[in-house]
Design a protein around this nucleic acid. Sequence first.
DNA 1: TCCGGGACTGACACCGACGTCAGTACGGTC
DNA 2: GACCGTACTGACGTCGGTGTCAGTCCCGGA
Lengths: 202, 202
Amino acid sequence: MRYTSGSVGKPERRQQILTLARDVFARRGYHATKIDEIVAAAGIARGTFYLYFEDKRAIFEEIVDRTIARLGLAIVRVDPHDASRSVADQVRDNIRRIVRILLEDRATTKILLSDALGVDPAFDRKLLSFYDEMSSLLETSLREGQELQVVAVGDVRLMSWLLMGALKESLFQIVQRGAEYDDEKLVDGAFDFFCAGCLRVT
Amino acid sequence: MRYTSGSVGKPERRQQILTLARDVFARRGYHATKIDEIVAAAGIARGTFYLYFEDKRAIFEEIVDRTIARLGLAIVRVDPHDASRSVADQVRDNIRRIVRILLEDRATTKILLSDALGVDPAFDRKLLSFYDEMSSLLETSLREGQELQVVAVGDVRLMSWLLMGALKESLFQIVQRGAEYDDEKLVDGAFDFFCAGCLRVT
DNA sequence: TCCGGGACTGACACCGACGTCAGTACGGTC
DNA sequence: GACCGTACTGACGTCGGTGTCAGTCCCGGA
């Protein structure tokens, strides 16, 4: 009896399972995904899965962690004293990097923005603390910006929530509906919104 | 053997289970909540639960549906030709009604904003179509606003996502952390943000 | 006092998903 | 051709959680 179409090395097999599992998670959601489905999608036997991953939670965590790590690196502190790059450009670049990462691998983004909460108390904590970190970073930057008068007066904590939420929801909607949406158009739209809102009610 | 401390009528018992279950869901999340936990929290036996509710999904749906229905009613179309109420006031009132409903019952809000997605494919669809409805309503209003020059030019669909996301995330953060946050401060903060963003980068 | 029915109970049978492990296939080495 | 070692297989035992239902309790009417 033949096992797999092509004989593959261990790291390749691992990556293969990871990628296929990601697609299943994106399609079915974390809780609805059974090991059997991952295994079927990857064209391997049940036992093989456990040779490469501890359990469902472990493979899920690995998928999400990669993107979280990339995001963490992509967001860099705005330096208002950098002569070579305006604050506006730096902000825009941050938005662009986030958007690029998240629209590049839509399956993972969908997972991250809709299934990652509610997996497990420990995992929830990790995810929330990531958001906390991002939010704190934002708050600090906003406060600094207020002193330099490049950020409106007001509660910076609330602002950070509003900003994060606006971007998160847009990205979620785009990947959720599988809509094509031009990266740059989103970056510009979000940036403009952050600068001036959208209501002009005198 | 005594059964329950106080003898209660059927509708009261039902409501009691509903309320206690809501708290358990809020604390533990949908998937982590077992019928046994609801039953323990309500101080009733396993069998009793099934006298009142089909299953876990049914009681969860009932909890969430109530709030969704209230939200649906709370959001009213902005009428730019209403002489008695300015557009700004009407918008602000919509925000206020949403905020009031969601901060009034924080447990349910937490459930709605963090657990409700990923329960079940059918339930997901229902929830997403609710958001779709809200989003469409918003888009229409925004488009109308653009004609009247009270809304910035740009993609109204993106704007609706940005607006919804900003508000959702703020509310989520508030209930998630159990932070006290003044209703009116949030309404004002969100409204100001919608009108003018928060960046002032020339 | 006995009976009937409604509210409630909780032990139990069932089930679906999990993780394991004895076994199979196959490529290399002597 | 015999013998490993490695990658893989899938049937099977296990288990946590579910929903059920025969039985208990209690009250109100005859």
